[in-house]
């Protein structure tokens, strides 16, 4: 409810500039406007599906890359550093183009637009996830490792039952940030033709020629998605904190 109140001034402001606006393109009371709106919102499914798939992959890869970064052995740490530094240095848009147009030539595997997008997003995000996990795991005190060792847990069980559950609670806000980031970055996959929110908006702009109104709606679409994610992450944090201070 509070959120709607916050957004209200924005709507009023936009509605107030009626002279230069042509809201009719997205006016739900007209057939054309309602169709346009429905067309725009139909991209949400792909945006969400692509972002969620990508974040699940990037969390998994990120964790697997973070673990050697915590090793005492220099060689393992070097593997972690190399991955993070290289992947982090590639702009997402470039990575998307490279995976979609470059990878088939290199490997003979042609990915469809969806999987090319997911792969590029996940790869790019995994470097950041690796850093988040490394910091989170490093924030767990030495005493927890020693206690785990003193009851003879092996490395896998120590990580699985003692260290990671505590680390994940601590990095939850950062993971939420990455999901928000992912939702926004997924708009770039529109350049290879993915039918997500931004692509739909672009297509509509071409036929209706009202970029101002259509892109404003696009902004609001992302805003709503991201507010939902924020609320979800906060709910999860509260739930986890109720069991541990």
């Amino acid at each position: 409810m509070k959120r709607i109140i916050v957004l209200l001034p924005l709507f009023l402001l936009l509605a107030g500039c009626s002279g230069n606006w042509g809201w009719y393109v997205v006016d739900p009371s007209t057939t054309n406007g309602a169709n346009n709106l429905r067309f725009m919102m139909s991209g949400a499914y792909n945006t969400v599906l692509m972002s969620l798939t990508a974040i699940l992959i990037s969390i998994t890869v990120g964790l697997l890359v973070a673990l050697p970064g915590l090793s005492k052995k220099k060689r393992w740490r070097a593997v972690n550093r190399t991955y993070v530094e290289i992947v982090r240095a590639v702009p997402i848009l470039v990575l998307i183009l490279w995976v979609y147009y470059g990878l088939p030539q290199l490997s003979g595997i042609t990915l469809n637009v969806f999987w090319a997008g997911v792969l590029a997003l996940a790869l790019s995000d995994s470097a950041f996830q690796a850093e988040i996990f490394r910091a989170g795991i490093q924030s767990i005190g030495k005493g927890q490792y020693e206690a785990a060792q003193s009851i003879s847990l092996n490395y896998r069980d120590m990580m699985r039952f003692v260290i990671l559950p505590q680390a994940i609670r601590r990095i939850l806000p950062a993971l939420g940030n990455q999901l928000v980031y992912m939702l926004k970055m997924s708009s770039l996959v529109s350049v290879i033709g993915m039918q997500e929110l931004t692509r739909k908006a672009n297509e509509l702009v071409v036929s209706e020629y009202r970029p101002l109104e259509i892109y404003t709606i696009l902004v609001l679409e992302y805003l709503v998605l991201i507010l939902i994610v924020s609320a979800g992450v906060r709910w999860l944090e509260r739930r986890m904190n109720s069991s541990e201070a």
Partner: peptide
């Protein structure tokens, strides 16, 4: 077995879970 100065219990587990994990 070892007992530490700072206890080092697992804060995310209940007392019972602390004891049954090992």
């Amino acid at each position: 077995g070892m007992v530490f100065q700072q206890f080092n219990l697992f804060p995310h587990l209940t007392v019972l879970e602390n004891l049954t994990l090992g």
